[in-house]
Design a protein around this nucleic acid. Sequence first.
DNA 1: CTTTTTAGTTACTCATATTAACTATTAACT
DNA 2: AGTTAATAGTTAATATGAGTAACTAAAAAG
Lengths: 144, 144
Amino acid sequence: MEGIFRHYLAIYRPLITRLNQLLEPYGLTYSLWQVIFYIEREGPSTLVEISSYYGVEKPSITRRVHRLEERELIEQIPGKDRRVKVIRLTGRGVAVYRECREKISLLEGEIMKGMAREEQELLHRLLPEIRKNLMRKGGAGDEA
Amino acid sequence: MEGIFRHYLAIYRPLITRLNQLLEPYGLTYSLWQVIFYIEREGPSTLVEISSYYGVEKPSITRRVHRLEERELIEQIPGKDRRVKVIRLTGRGVAVYRECREKISLLEGEIMKGMAREEQELLHRLLPEIRKNLMRKGGAGDEA
DNA sequence: CTTTTTAGTTACTCATATTAACTATTAACT
DNA sequence: AGTTAATAGTTAATATGAGTAACTAAAAAG
């Protein structure tokens, strides 16, 4: 069973391009979207949480967060541990989330068009499995 | 069926990291590997062909090709259309291809471990289909 | 209370991409 | 044939996004 990486990677750039086109009107890129998405899902979160979830180093998340703060899509919640920066979506952030989420879902539907339901479900199951296998031995940046 | 992009993208960084680790002993990165791979598969090719296959702009491919030429893994074939730069693998290029191909196949096997044969086959079928859907309307860098 | 750990930031560098403008060459059209 | 348009590739400038190392501030552990 050869060539799975090739098939996988052949999707990446077109996908990112489409997503960035979709997000551009909101002043977002996919990497910023990831942060919004995470916060919306998990509730108020810290940089370390986001960082370790996405397997990305802290400085990268710092930068994403700063950009989202500038755009007033997220804001800091003061808490008692003063090391920690807990962030949440602003009202605007929530609105932007909703709009983008909807458009992304539409795009997802478009991309899965022509696939049987079971095929789609299998994809949903297999992709995380691949990720898991990928992280198991070689140690490719999950635990930050 | 939401969240397919998220599942897909969660694989990208760990995968690239693994591939780059694997290729590093050969002075390659995955982006250079893509070019070698394409040429090996398709035979002598032009920059535009590679560029449009991967959905990457021409200048990016120019750079990749230059780097591979420096490393003497590919070389130019003179042809009659003097605008076109047709490249092929050198002897060293072929040797490096073989070694890397083998290692990558092993990694692919490792990553697919625990999947039924039919599941693997389905992946091989569905990923290209996704790519096709992705390129169809929005125009995400196929026709360069 | 000193030491260690944790969260986040800053500074620097790397990998890779994009756009725009350009050259050279071939193809198309009158 | 001779002009115009299209094509292949390159160069230059810039953007995105990541990683590492070194740092500050604050809390936890001892």
